[in-house]
Design a protein around this nucleic acid. Structure first.
Ligand SMILES: Nc1ncnc2c1ncn2[C@@H]1O[C@H](COP(=O)(O)OP(=O)(O)OP(=O)(O)O)[C@@H](O)[C@H]1O
Length: 752
DNA sequence: AATGACAGGCTTTTT
DNA sequence: GCCTGTCATT
């Protein structure tokens, strides 16, 4: 079947309209991404456009990944040429690495992530003698970012400051900008802004990129901010074969500057523009689609659009209400475990509003022995030990990068403390030089106490050695040198704690990533850029069929089964949005996005009682208003509640017993609590069977939950323990290996 | 300078 | 409840 036959008439028209500006406006699941990907394939295969002349961009990594894999599935490209499919940010990095020097950007600039940015802001606050209590670094940073994205310089910001507080923010902003310049560093905002500046100021470069990418496609156009819009404008000066697709009902990034004007004024900015609407949804069953449409219809600031599906009516949208968060998560895990038996290959997503909500679900899934994959959250590259080592690499490439330098200067501890660092920082500020320069000067002219100098000297030598390593040596080679010289692993091993071993694992993972990168022929800088931009968590368990992620990350994806959990006032809609009508509408769109990810089954859940920061007393929640916006006829209540069952509040029976975690003597109070909840959940009288087991020789063997090491499989966690005596069998989840069932007696396990 | 105990605040959401 | 930042102790 040919490419075009797999499209409906409107989609087909959108794909064939290759020349001139085109805006596609359409609801969820109507094939917007399909149009983008087919269009790329069509251009390459039918119109003979060289793949490298096609640029497809979007905002999030996940959405870019989705696009990339779908394009790849569609075209069989000869040779190495590939269309450039990425996020705006990666695109800009590539542009700036190549042509940044033309606007005075150092070629080896560092990219500062939020953590780095905060360090800079804090240091500026300190230098200005401002107390963080009054001016929170995070708040200042968000003001700075907002100002930058609205084209305000520190000076303009200062002039517009309405109160003394804002004036101070303006001063911090100025210092912040100066610090970044001095560190040869750019933040995420700068990546876009500097790329725009480059294209604006250098006509020659602008022309080059215009010619290089005569075909540009933008997915999730409703998420673009003004800077990204500007970038697209600058790339479409000589030709306007621009295809933007979007859905105003899925605009969920206004809090970081996404601006619907980009969509609304598209026709104004591109007078030749054609607009095509897609109205058939191919993804979801009618119940799911109707429910989602009913919710979003409550938004007032919206034009409204048609969306229908030819799919047969499926199951109703499920609704489960549990007594507390734990029960809610166990319901989900149990439901999944049962479903798994019928269809072991089905993809399932658990979606939530905030990253913090993932914990309960991870725990529940682990208990059921289900493999899962968490997207986002504390990403791999954000872990302290990983960032420490990356800091060595960043500093090795760019010694002006003081944040990275300061990050690795005393990790592992080498006798350079805050006093020494503060002193040097002061000197640097005074001389208006970088930390590295001042450090060298201090050593040479003996400007510090001998003890400090003695500690600084070896550090300086190490960094010089790293810098001297050839630019094309890969990340892994340099990392190895760092590890050897600093005895990083050894000192962690000596620590001997489970946390330390966890860190060792992460470092091993980093070494693997670096080695892979080297094999692909990437330079150190490319490796670092990837680490900075693709803050993608646990890329290792990607084949797990159960995905946990925020509603934001889920946009653009689809799953046969979707759980939308925590459907409560305060969570969805989030409490921070209750004050203002526009924010509330955005929450509603978020709900819409989540619901429309589902293909065949959608289940909404909530907990009646929710602990907000856990320790605090549990509060009774109110059901999300979005639930009541779904017509009752589309909902099916999954929480049957017979009133006369005494203790047993919920009739729902587990299909397999949750794995007991009460055996080891080292259980924490929190886990005891969980067990108590499980028991209540299953309607068992409090504390009956398990405590008996607790008494049974807990010292021998490895209770569920203990961390172990196996000579062949490495480190892992015991999930389940069955049988007794010589026959005792353990189910262990080994990192990077997966589940293994072992006879305890022969397994040769070591406690860690 | 390094370590450990304690207080306080924190959670939107992404690059 | 957990992480971070601060303080006191060695
Ligand atoms: N003409 C078609 N024939 C068959 N399947 C289609 C067609 N158009 C779209 N689909 C399928 O419908 C699903 C949704 O399409 P797609 O992801 O492109 O929609 P979308 O508009 O980008 O959705 P969203 O905005 O919700 O992310 C995909 O599985 C896609 O393959």
């Amino acid at each position: 079947m040919s490419l075009l036959d797999q499209l409906n008439p409107q989609q087909r028209e959108a794909v064939e309209t290759t020349d001139g500006p085109l805006l596609i406006l359409a609801g969820a699941g109507s094939g917007k991404t399909r149009v983008i990907t087919y269009r790329v394939a069509y251009l390459a295969e039918y119109r003979g456009v060289p793949a490298e002349n096609i640029l497809a961009v979007t905002f999030t990594n996940k959405a870019a990944e989705e696009m990339r894999s779908r394009v790849q599935g569609l075209i069989r490209l000869p040779g190495l040429a590939r269309p450039w499919v990425s996020t705006f940010h990666s695109f800009c990095v590539r542009v700036l690495r190549r042509d940044g020097p033309r606007i005075g950007l150092p070629r080896d600039f560092s990219i500062y992530d939020e953590d780095d940015q905060l360090r800079v802001v804090k240091s500026c606050l300190r230098q200005l003698g401002l107390v963080e209590k009054e001016l929170q670094a995070r708040a200042v940073l968000s003001r700075i970012s907002h100002a930058k994205n609205h084209g305000r310089s520190p000076e303009t910001f200062y002039l517009h400051a309405s109160d003394p507080m804002m004036e101070r923010v303006a001063v911090v902003y100025e210092e912040y900008a100066k610090a970044l310049r001095q560190a040869h560093a750019v933040d995420f905002d700068d990546l876009l802004l500097e790329a725009v500046r480059l294209l604006r100021e250098d006509a020659e470069v602008a022309l080059q990129y215009n010619q290089r990418y005569p075909y540009i496609l933008v997915d999730e156009y409703q998420d673009t901010n003004r800077t990204q819009y500007e970038l697209v404008r600058l790339l479409t000066q000589t030709q306007q074969n621009l295809c933007a697709v979007g859905d105003e009902d899925q605009s969920i990034y206004s809090w970081r500057g996404a601006d619907l004007r980009n969509i609304v004024e598209f026709e104004k900015d591109y007078p030749q523009a054609r607009i095509i609407r897609l109205e058939q949804n191919y993804r979801s069953t009618p119940s799911i689609l109707d429910a989602a449409s009913a919710v979003v219809a409550n938004n007032r600031y919206r034009k409204g659009k048609t969306l229908w599906t030819a799919r047969q009516s499926g199951q109703k949208v499920g609704y489960y209400e549990g007594p507390d968060g734990e029960n809610e998560s166990l319901f989900v895990a149990d439901w999944i475990a049962r479903r798994r038996r019928q269809d072991p290959d089905e993809k399932i997503a658990i979606l939530y509003r905030t990253n913090a909500q993932s914990r309960l679900y991870e725990e529940a899934l682990r208990r059921y022995g289900l493999k899962y994959h968490v997207v986002g959250g504390v990403s791999f590259y954000e872990r302290a030990e990983v960032k420490d080592l990356l800091a060595y690499l960043k500093a090795a490439r760019n010694l002006q990068d003081s944040v990275s330098l300061l990050r690795c200067i005393n990790s592992p501890p080498r006798g350079i403390g805050t006093t020494t660092v503060r002193k040097l920082e002061e000197m640097a500020l005074e001389a208006n030089r970088s930390f590295w320069d001042i450090m060298g000067q201090a050593i040479e002219q003996k400007l510090l106490p001998p003890r400090s100098l003695q500690a600084l000297q070896p550090f300086r030598e190490l960094m010089e050695e790293l810098r001297a390593m050839p630019a094309e040596s890969g990340a892994s080679e340099i990392l190895k040198t760092v590890m050897e010289r600093t005895r990083y692993l050894e000192s962690l091993e000596e620590e001997g704690t489970p946390e330390a071993f966890g860190r060792i694992e992460n470092i091993q993972e980093l070494l693997n990533a670096a080695a892979d990168s080297h094999e692909r022929g990437e330079t150190l800088i490319q490796f670092l850029d990837h680490a900075a931009l693709v803050s993608d968590a646990d890329s290792y368990d990607e084949n797990a069929l159960i995905s946990l992620m925020t509603l934001h990350s889920a946009k653009g994806l689809e799953f046969p089964v979707v759980f939308l959990v925590g459907m409560e006032e305060g969570l969805l809609p989030h409490s921070r949005s209750l004050m203002n009508a526009e924010a509330l509408e955005e929450e509603r769109r978020l709900c819409y996005v989540g619901m429309t990810r589902a293909q065949d089954a959608l289940i909404l859940t909530r907990a009646v009682s929710r602990r907000h920061y856990a320790s605090a007393m549990a509060e009774t929640s109110r059901a999300s208003r979005f639930l009541s916006e779904i017509p009752a006829s589309l909902l099916q209540d999954l929480s049957k509640r017979p009133a006369d069952r005494g203790e047993r509040h919920y009739e729902y029976e587990p299909s397999e017993p949750a794995l007991s975690k009460v055996e080891g003597p080292e259980e924490t109070a929190e886990q005891e609590d969980s067990v108590e909840n499980v028991r209540r959940f299953f309607g068992l009288p409090a504390g009956r069977s398990e405590p008996v087991k607790t008494k049974r020789k807990p010292q021998t063997g490895f209770p569920a939950g203990s961390r172990v090491r196996h000579p062949k499989f490495g480190y892992g966690t015991v999930l389940r323990r069955e049988g007794a005596g010589d026959d005792t069998k353990l189910t262990v989840n080994f990192h990077g290996v997966g589940l293994k069932k072992l006879v305890e007696k022969y397994a040769d396990l070591e406690r860690v």
